[in-house]
């Protein structure tokens, strides 16, 4: 499945954040969007996830404008994990993940054996099967994030968009979530995530989209994109880029503000 953004204009309440942005998401890859605060990376992801309506241009899903397709059908192809969603009180992990089947259900036909199988699989893929009966509000931040991902997996979409999935998590849980994203991509999905940590982006992404002031500054493989020049240009930060001792991916070491 192909996701393309053409001439996209988007923003909030009269403030345009993106003004004619075009970018393509490579299918079957793990793409990470990076950029400083207010660079428009979340706006881009939210518009791609149709949480935000474009003011101009379009997001194309296999060539069709996403915002003109029936939402239920889009939800069968495109899953989204919003940033820090509100946790509903008093429901179990299993109950929440089951709601990921919503796009396949109707009020007169609510639950099938098929749904059951998919939900069990989603729980085990996201590594939360043993938490199934626990109330969500009792879980740690890292566990919750995996539960939300499980819910998105139960949607059985080829593409999954995640808005800052590692924010508010400690380092070990950040790595858990990143590794889970990597496993899902290996399983054949297209993954797009907004991340804050450059080094994690360089280490886990197949493809990087670097943004500044609502525009795409560079796209490509981490080894081509993550350079000292680019970090200066995008973040205004002086740094040295060395190969990571574990993976060989570019490792950004800041030297100071210019």
């Amino acid at each position: 499945m192909k996701l393309d953004v053409t001439e996209l204009v988007a923003g909030y309440d009269g403030r345009k954040v993106l003004n004619g942005l075009s970018v393509a998401i490579p299918p079957g890859k793990l793409t990470v969007i990076i950029g400083p605060n207010a660079s428009g990376k979340s706006t881009l992801l939210r518009t791609m996830a149709r949480l935000l309506k474009p003011r101009g241009g379009a997001v194309l899903l296999d060539g069709q404008p996403l915002h003109e397709l029936p939402p239920r059908l889009v939800a069968q192809r495109l899953g989204v994990l919003p940033q820090a969603p509100l946790v509903p009180e008093g429901i179990s992990v299993l109950d929440l993940v089951s709601r990921g089947r919503q796009p396949y259900q109707r009020w007169w036909r609510q639950w099938s054996a098929d749904d059951e199988t998919v939900v069990r699989q989603a729980l085990s893929d996201a590594d939360v099967a043993d938490l199934a009966d626990r109330p969500i509000e009792e879980l740690s931040g890292g566990q919750r994030q995996r539960v939300w991902i499980a819910m998105a997996l139960a949607q059985q979409t080829e593409t999954l968009l995640l808005d800052e999935p590692t924010t508010f998590l400690d380092l070990a849980h950040q790595v858990d979530v990143l590794a889970l994203m990597r496993r899902l991509q290996r399983g054949g999905r297209t993954i797009v995530a907004v991340l804050h940590d450059l080094n994690q982006a360089a280490r886990f992404a197949d493809h990087i989209i670097a943004m500044r002031d609502g525009e795409v500054v560079a796209t490509g493989a981490p080894s081509n994109v993550v350079t000292a020049d680019l970090v200066r240009q995008v973040f205004g930060l002086e740094c040295v880029v060395v190969p990571c001792p574990v993976s060989g991916a570019p490792l950004v070491v800041p030297t100071g503000k210019e």
Partner: peptide, 24 residues
Amino acid sequence: LAWAAWALRISSLDDDVARGLGVR
């Protein structure tokens, strides 16, 4: 009301999550 009993399941979720599930 039968519809409502089902629709309320999603209404208790965050709006963004609901939109992601194809609900207005």
